[in-house]
């Protein structure tokens, strides 16, 4: 619909005001991380008069952020790979196998969308200890994979059900096995849905703080989120460093978001859209 002048004005005022409220903290975060402490207090909003990388240098050396990044990358990549692989296999069976078992399993998986896995943390702590994985980042991977199953089965099953059935039938008549149908036909067709699931889980896993907090203490196993919380505690009074640490955690995701905004929005709201 086209807006008349007063409507347009109202729209711009409301959305413009909120945009300032959103962008202003992000701006202060990034711009002040390059200023010495004194200048932050004197002029918290402007561009840096004297440009410094001290905060970043300190965070990188003292906090071993290089390590935290690699750890988080490894955990995120392996967990995502597994979620997409076993999630899509399960979704294929859930969509094509008509039986009471598959109906039950579908509901069983979907129920996990509404029940946060955190409530089972105490048993997970015991389980991780039994598996002798405590204090390693490997402990995070199975938990994240389990956590990703509801959204993966929800989105991917719905997607496969929408695909025309004749395609599968034709391949089967030609003698293809289910595995071949899945890997050669379904998987390539599923790419957009896989991207949605990947983004949803990537943001959740990359930003997760709870499980690293509970499972991990050792420096060499820390993730970015855990590193941020520990360093922020140390640097509370040194704003340059504190802001540098926060920027290090926030900026990679923000850059990805700017490139892939549409996909991010679709991915993060995937759980809410009826399949």
């Amino acid at each position: 619909m086209r807006l008349n002048k007063p409507q347009l004005l109202f729209t711009y005022i409301v959305l413009g005001a909120w945009s300032v409220i959103v962008l202003f903290p992000i701006w202060t975060l990034i711009v002040n991380s390059f200023k010495p402490q004194k200048q932050i207090f004197k002029d918290p909003f402007g561009l840096p008069e004297t440009f410094t990388l001290d905060g970043y240098r300190e965070a990188w050396n003292n906090g071993r952020f290089d390590l935290y990044f690699i750890n988080t990358l490894i955990v995120t990549a392996i967990a995502l790979g597994l979620i997409l692989f076993i999630g899509s296999m399960a979704a294929y069976a859930l969509a094509k196998w008509k039986s009471p078992i598959s109906n039950f399993l579908y509901i069983f998986f979907i129920a996990g969308l509404m029940i946060p896995i955190r409530l089972g943390t105490l048993d997970l702590v015991r389980l991780i200890k039994t598996l002798n994985l405590q204090d390693t980042y490997w402990s995070l991977i199975p938990v994240y994979v389990a956590m990703g199953m509801p959204i993966a089965t929800f989105v991917l099953t719905a997607f496969i059900k929408e695909l025309p059935g004749e395609m599968f039938e034709a391949a089967k008549i030609d003698g293809a096995s289910e595995w071949q149908v899945y890997s050669r036909i379904v998987l390539p067709l599923m790419r957009p849905a896989l991207a949605t699931v990947a983004i949803f889980n990537m943001i959740k896993i990359w930003n997760d703080f709870w499980f690293p907090l509970v499972f991990i203490r050792a420096e060499e196993s820390r993730t970015v989120a855990l590193g941020v919380s520990l360093l922020f505690g140390q640097y509370r009074t040194d704003w340059t460093r504190a802001l540098a640490v926060l920027s290090l955690a926030a900026v990679p995701m923000l850059i990805l978001y700017m490139i892939l905004a549409r996909e991010f929005i679709k991915g993060l709201t995937a759980g809410a859209v009826k399949g």
Binding site: M89, A90, L94, G112, M149
Partner: peptide
Amino acid sequence: FLLPAVIMYLVFMAGPL
């Protein structure tokens, strides 16, 4: 096809809950 997902989900999510 379903087994890996069911096992992960059962052992690391539903079971602990």
